[in-house]
Amino acid sequence: QDIQELRLKVIGGWSNVTMTTAVEQPFWQKTMPDLSGGKITADFNSLDTLGLKGDETLRLLRLKIADIVTGPVSFVAGDFKLYDGLDLSGAILDIESMRKAVDAYRPVIDKNMQENFNAHLLMMWPSPPQVLFCKGEIKGVADLKGKKIRTFNQTLADFVEAVGGTPVNLSFAEVVPALQNGTADCGVTGTGPGNSAKWWEVTDHLFPLVLGWSPYFSAINLDTWNSLDEPTKAFLTEAFGKLEDEMWAHVAGVATEGVNCNTGIGECAKGIKANMKLVEVTDADKALLAGMVTETILPRWAGRCGEACVAQWNETVGKALGFTAKAQ
């Protein structure tokens, strides 16, 4: 294999999530050098150790501060609303549908990256499903009425308003004390992260209604990409394809284990066993949620995103999921 020698500067995902520590970082520090026979190495840093918030990743890539960056997709929505299109609360209920949506939306995001950030999209993968951790008895969606629910993006706030709750904006650091003291009654986070951040210490009901997937992207600076010869590009494309598959498999595993660990039932190898009560998501709940998606969440997002953006989304993600977004 005749590939170029490269030393890539990589900014990876949050250092406190397993997607970074168990998959992404080992990939850059071990797998990639091994696969390339030592020709391709990387200087890897997590975005939080660099003191970044996550909404500036693509801007930094455009300035060529690094060759490759990973960041949360919906954090780019500050610059372009279309980046929220993969994280619309409650629209995607299982990981297979999420994969379909991601594959459908890939060209749209890549085009936006090429045009605005001088970047090329390499991979996208989800977080474990974002579900509700609540303090106090919850039987279904209807019980969320009147609850103070910690949200971290606009479409989650739309959901909370739709169920008649109060959205509370808190930084991740303040969620656990807030849940303990009752500043918030419920919080939304991934099943795995919620387990490792010990949310089960301060809540007792796990309501696995899937409210989002907080997807991540990995992108490469276009100048770096264009400077590569064809064999190297082909080699990298294949390696990233494998990494992406590995990431999805990892997340699927973490998602199931996350539920097991939080409830203390079933296999829990990597997490901490807790004893939260698992609330069953009934068909009635799903129907209620679907109604909110079509009546509130999608139209509000469509209003923010604009006509051209909505048309693109309907063509791709909408088609894959069977939704049509229309501004109110």
Partner: peptide
């Protein structure tokens, strides 16, 4: 930073959506 925000029409993440 400012000119990039103007060019992208960037706005804040909350429901206020203030132009950055």
């Amino acid at each position: 930073v400012l000119t990039t925000s103007i060019r992208f029409g960037a706005s804040s993440q909350s429901s206020l959506a203030i132009p950055k």
